[in-house]
């Protein structure tokens, strides 16, 4: 109800003069965060620091459109643990479990990172976006978008999202509760390059730094390495095949 009202309110809000279509901006920025139609693979390292203690986990992430499969590679005691994103359903599997567990994208994976942060981003499908402003992020001109979740099973209820005007990729995000309270912030770096199926080489995310905004001071860095477009068969993301 609250989300619907927010969507209506944002829909009625005046757009910024000269602003591009929010959907087009989100589609382009999603591509640079793994939203490949046929598939993409990368290795992800999640490094979280809380009260001086650092924890690291690495995962092999294979994504295709709205699905993703993230297998834990290290540390050894978490090896074999798998997160399967089937559209909006998220399963957790590990050796020794007879059945997968349905989990939430909002649940914490590690440190400040939620389970949903691991997979490719599909904000164009999951959020209703409105260009709400025109601001610079670290000197780079950007559009500020207000995103409101279309459904309850996405990772965040509301996001303030800054997308570079020139490069059309996300520079910064503020994650808000449904009531509008800020609880996490994220910044993005694009040190990777990948060639998309059309032949064009694009910048690809290399790090997402998530900071707690509630005063606990936790920081989690998701590092993306060796990204490569790969055509993944849809069956790869079938929960029955993953369990076997």
């Amino acid at each position: 109800m609250m989300a619907a009202l927010l969507v209506l309110a944002l829909g009625a809000a005046p757009t910024v003069p000269g602003a591009p279509d929010a959907k087009a901006l989100l589609r382009d920025s999603d591509l640079r965060r793994g939203g490949f139609e046929k598939g993409v693979t990368w290795t992800l390292t999640v490094e979280s620091t809380e009260e001086g203690a650092t924890t690291t986990r690495s995962m092999l992430v294979r994504a295709r459109d709205v699905d993703a499969l993230a297998e834990t590679l290290a540390p050894p005691r978490h090896k074999g643990e798998t997160f399967l994103f089937n559209d909006r359903t998220l399963w957790f599997l590990k050796p020794g479990l007879r059945r997968p567990i349905a989990i939430s994208a909002r649940q914490r994976l590690q440190g400040e990172a939620s389970n949903g942060d691991v997979a490719s981003t599909n904000y164009v499908r999951d959020y209703e976006g409105t260009v709400a402003g025109d601001e610079a992020v670290d000197g780079e001109p950007a559009w500020r978008l207000d995103l409101v979740a279309r459904t309850k099973d996405v990772t965040y209820d509301r996001i303030r999202y800054w997308i570079s005007k020139q490069r059309r990729l996300a520079l910064k995000a503020e994650f808000l509760t449904v009531g509008g309270d800020l609880f996490k912030t994220a910044t993005f770096q694009y040190g990777n390059r990948v060639r998309v199926p059309g032949g064009e080489e694009i910048e690809f995310i290399s790090a997402m730094t998530i900071r707690d905004a509630m005063g606990e001071g936790g920081v989690t860095v998701l590092r993306y390495s060796t990204p490569r477009p790969e055509a993944h068969a849809p069956s790869l993301f079938n929960v029955n095949n993953v369990v076997r």
Binding site: S48, T55, F92, K94, L97, R98, P100, R108, L109, G111
Partner: peptide, 18 residues
């Protein structure tokens, strides 16, 4: 009778047992 239980572990990661 099997039930899968999941929880956040002491080190902040996600753990599960059956």
């Amino acid at each position: 009778p099997f039930v899968q239980l999941g929880a956040r572990t002491q080190d902040g990661s996600f753990g599960a047992i059956e």
